[in-house]
Design a protein around this nucleic acid. Structure first.
Lengths: 325, 325
DNA sequence: CCCCGATGTGCATCCGATTGCACCGCGTGT
DNA sequence: ACACGCGGTGCAATCGGATGCACATCGGGG
């Protein structure tokens, strides 16, 4: 299928290729009637501009690289979709790469993306800050769900919501609360843990910590046993997936939720609502995070000044929390 | 950040750019010692070949376009990841586009992808066959989870497994089984429904059909009421997400699973194992589908002959099925 | 000692689109 | 009538890498 080029269109109309090019990229420079003809012929021939050629000439590829640690974690699909849709409004497409939860591959993958994207969105990256900054080598980059000194950042601050969640548990009579910490290399995990610890130190409650655990179902499931052994009557899990694992683990152990134990998740992914009972959790504006990330990235690419974005999560009470016995 | 090019490397070493280029793409044509120097200098300067330039010269972009109807449906993330990992072995990256469950956008999105990819993988596309074939305009394409006459196809045949599932229900004493059909425009939905109907017509069972429904949690949830009203004691859902919705709906109505009703899903996505009790379902080799799709696509791109791939799903008995009362 | 093939390199061209610059023709002001 | 401005247009260079072809170099065989 030898595709139409600006040259074939130009030849067809007896004009120069420059004019054809301009008819698309700088329509104001081309006489109305000519432009019409060009567009019409282009449509007839099924012309699609060659992105490689354009990229070579302009230095822009129209691609945004998106790096996620684990696309099967239900937090990321809505994020990716929001990014993709927002990018589409900038005529850009998404190059998706999954680094695996192990952060060591990130640098390599970032390197592979660098040469072919206008900018990068790093979602919950695990590598060390210095490593990241070295890897991106000056490419416009926005970090989502993590703060990296010196890089534009779009995060969701769950501190207040988590503390409300804790308070909600205390108000319900829970005096021994388990905290399931997320991956040590995950910024959000540390941040959430700190929020909870801060709250606990000032509340009438005993905090029992477990982890760090991976943000996976199985890790939560395995942790259930320890939670039960600890005598805690409530659980604050790093995220919904882990919370979901705990629920499953508790069920295996014959413990009822929210009857015997209460469980709180974080993020409010699809999973949280598919459970029965539905999961009490901290709702993050996931789509908004994605959109804002693209917005900020656009500014970085254009060399405009940018400010970090911090959205806030809100506590959503559902069915997995109840008064302690 | 003015990046290194083959010219800057060539200049540094006092050789021609062609040699540098060949050191990467045709290493056998370059003297060992020279190649060493080139690679070393390239590393030192942080050289990354410019994909646009390479693409322009070779006509290959190193990109695979992947179109999914809904990345938040847990079926697709593992598929996408498998595709991405397999593509990486071919030095290719994934351009991800989400069409939304409404198939009308597919053509437009395919058009956007065409000009920048070496090949397309269409996962569960919804548009009509003729529309699809017109939209891809000769670009190497593989269709996953659907058969399209004239296009290479990678599917999972669940017929036998679904019929086993049905038999499993009948053996457990169920005589009235609800079938929740998937989206009318989804090939897999029709195929699965047909498999079940065929089985039912030869079995001692009454089949009650509902739908078509979207492959979403909420649709399943809403359907629960009808299912209960129908007096069915077992449900075969189009996919796990829908099954999960039914479970939630049934719980709301105070019906216990598997005590009062049995539920069977399809695909065995992460969701199926996070439920309590875990979902009895038909396990699809999702990652394998992705890998095979890339494999086949590679052959199409290289002009080699290809055969359609049909994998098979297997019945996985878990906790949502039990003898009828 | 010369010729030959094999092996390495360089030169020039090409891929398709963008873009700075020159130019053309027309209308306007003087 | 002339210069000027300006909207439109074409020419040619450019982006970075790939590649066909010519040529240089070297060793070995006759």
């Amino acid at each position: 299928m030898n595709r139409a080029t600006i040259y074939s269109i130009a030849q067809e109309l007896g004009i120069s290729a420059s004019t054809v090019s301009r008819a698309f990229t700088r329509p104001d420079l081309v006489r109305e009637s000519v432009r019409e003809q060009v567009l019409q012929t282009a449509r007839r021939l099924g012309y699609q501009p060659n992105r490689s050629a354009r990229g070579l000439a302009t230095g822009r590829t129209g691609l945004v690289g998106v790096l996620v640690p684990d696309i099967t974690n239900p937090f990321f699909p809505p994020l990716v979709r929001a990014i993709e849709q927002q990018a589409a409004t900038h005529d850009s497409d998404v190059l998706l790469v999954d680094s695996g939860v192990n952060g060591t591959a990130e640098s390599v993958l970032i390197g592979r993306l660098l040469s072919q994207v206008d900018g990068l969105i790093l979602a919950s990256p695990r590598a060390r800050s210095a490593t990241l900054k070295q890897a991106i080598a000056g490419t416009p980059t926005v970090v989502v769900n993590r703060a990296v000194q010196g890089l534009p950042t779009v995060v969701c601050d769950n501190t207040a919501a988590l503390q409300q969640a804790g308070q909600h548990l205390v108000d319900a009579g829970h005096r021994r609360v388990a905290l399931l910490c997320g991956p040590a290399s995950a910024w959000a995990a540390n941040r959430r843990a700190r929020a909870v610890r801060t709250w606990a130190s000032g509340a009438d409650v005993e905090l029992v910590e477990f982890g760090p655990l991976e943000a996976q179902f199985e890790d939560g499931q395995r942790a259930a046993e320890d939670v039960v052994a600890s005598g805690a009557t409530a659980v604050l899990a790093f995220d919904d997936l882990m919370a979901c694992g705990v629920l499953a683990g508790l069920a295996e152990l014959g413990r009822s939720v929210p009857g015997e134990l209460s469980v709180v998740g974080c993020d409010d992914v699809l999973l949280a609502r598919t459970l029965t009972p539905q999961l009490t959790t901290v709702t993050a504006p996931i789509e908004e995070l994605g959109r804002r990330a693209v917005e900020v990235l656009g500014k970085v690419v254009d060399g405009e000044p940018v400010a970090n974005v911090s959205l806030t999560g809100t506590l959503t009470l559902r069915g997995t929390t109840a008064p302690a016995l």
